[in-house]
Design a protein around this nucleic acid. Structure first.
Lengths: 175, 175
DNA sequence: TACTTTGTTTAGTTTAAACTAAACGTTCAA
DNA sequence: TTGAACGTTTAGTTTAAACTAAACAAAGTA
């Protein structure tokens, strides 16, 4: 293939790897997505081992992460035991999927513990000597909780807007 | 101090540490912010060493990260060589600051390389045998670039809306 | 039944981030 | 001018994530 295209692909894969890394994912995971995304035909595990240059095990685990995020899709071919993978090309869909899934993950557990801390403070019987501290904690924790709740609302609103676009309007105008 | 308040604080600090960790920052950095945020008086380095339970060096480097993100502010007291730190309590301001700073960081360098890859593809002279590949790369890279540009626009819009709120309206109604 | 071909899991290794302890530079006070 | 009180930097260590190699399980094929 044309050298310049090979170079363009290499550069692209490297860029996506860096983005992956920036968001706290393994570099190999980004590289993997980039390779699948730039492949005109569905990719197999062994192809990816060659393309990305990591072990079979690493491809196997990373591809599962990508699938969980909805960034790639497994495509099964009848009479063929290989797994084929395709890239999701609707990036907004990926983002929305991740936002929708967030309740289940570590992130919301953490947010919850802010709420729990606040409840603890509020449930504390007022003691003469620690009353000021209690009031201060309450104020600060409430402020942070409100911020998180607002963030939640922003996200929920964005998702709702998108839902309307996709259901109501599609229904109205029949696509 | 009241045991229950101590426990509430501990729980809060742990929660923020986990959030910090989730976003790819050191856990100690989150703990540090939480401690400062819950302190009614400005915090000094040595206090934080005790409160968070890490070394002076770790506090020093982590506090600098927090400052860079605009999450804490150094407060100098005349006739006192200690540095005092206060927490930023306007979280939207923190978020906006981070969004505004993002051009300078690793993230945008990565986005740029997607654009560069596309340019490489477009600058490739059309060869008979690789023409289809070239067209495919161009299509995929363009789609991704457009997504990134849209994201950029969303962010820019949000920032602009906020600027209007803060300047025009404030001016009109004189706060 | 044994052998291939596939993807997954596991035990151990590598690597990079975050930490500690201690040296250091600076500033002020005595 | 020495020493104490700071915050920062550095050299080395610890720790956790991500990887490799290889064993493995499943499912088909000869």
């Amino acid at each position: 293939m044309d050298d310049q295209l090979v170079e363009a692909k290499r550069h692209f894969v490297e860029g996506i790897s860096r983005i992956s890394n920036f968001w706290g994912f393994p570099k190999a995971m980004g590289a993997l997505f980039a390779v699948i995304y730039l492949s005109p035909t569905p990719s197999t595990l062994d192809e990816m081992v060659v393309e990305v240059g990591v072990s079979k095990g690493a491809v196997s685990t990373n591809i599962r992460s990508l699938e969980r995020l909805g960034m790639v899709h497994k495509k099964l071919v009848v009479g063929d035991r290989k797994d084929y993978y395709l890239a999701e090309t609707d990036f907004w869909k990926i983002v929305k999927g991740i936002l929708r899934e967030r309740e289940k993950n570590e992130f919301d557990k953490a947010l919850q513990s802010v709420g729990e801390s606040l409840e603890l403070v509020e449930a504390t019987p007022a003691h003469e000597e620690s009353q000021q501290t209690q009031a201060f904690y309450k104020e600060r924790m409430t402020a942070l909780k409100q911020f998180f709740d607002s963030l939640d609302n922003v996200v929920a609103t964005l998702l709702a807007i998108d839902d309307i676009k996709n259901s109501v309007l599609k229904g109205l105008f029949n696509r």
